[in-house]
């Protein structure tokens, strides 16, 4: 069982992903706010952080930057998963800096994406 933080502000996506992850036996905390997510990352110890890039308040990259206080670059690369609807070359370039896997919405097969996100080694498909 993993302790997972899901940061996604689109309610239906958040709800569905949370349920699908829970059904696989993981403990999931779901948040819409990036600022609240940063606070949670400081207070709790998550095994995995799934993070949307375009949030209402801040961006997913801001969350990663703030997490640097707590995590080493290796931790960041291992823990963070980026999901985004804006997979422009610039964004992919930036995600590479953190060595984070990036998944573009919409997913063609949700379950396959969840399988990949949960895999230990951090390879995007």
């Amino acid at each position: 069982m993993k302790k997972i933080l899901l940061v996604e502000d689109e309610p239906l996506i958040q709800k569905t992903l949370k349920m699908l992850l829970q059904r696989r036996g993981h403990e999931v905390m779901a948040l819409s706010s990036g600022i609240k997510a940063i606070a949670q990352i400081h207070d709790e110890n998550f095994d995995l952080i799934i993070c949307d890039l375009m949030l209402q308040d801040i961006t997913g990259f801001d969350i990663i930057e703030e997490s640097k206080a707590k995590f080493s670059p290796e931790d960041i690369s291992a823990k963070f998963r980026i999901i985004t609807a804006y997979s422009s070359p610039q964004i992919i370039e930036k995600a590479k800096l953190y060595q984070c896997a990036i998944y573009s919405k919409p997913f063609t097969d949700v379950n396959l994406v969840i399988d990949n996100i949960l895999r230990e080694n951090n390879d995007a498909d």
């Binding site: 689109e10 239906l12 996506i13 709800k15 569905t16 992903l17 919405k105 919409p106 997913f107």
Partner: peptide, 11 residues
């Protein structure tokens, strides 16, 4: 629109 529509799709 693609984000909420995707939400509807997967849910």
């Amino acid at each position: 629109l693609s984000n909420p529509l995707f939400g509807i799709s997967i849910s």
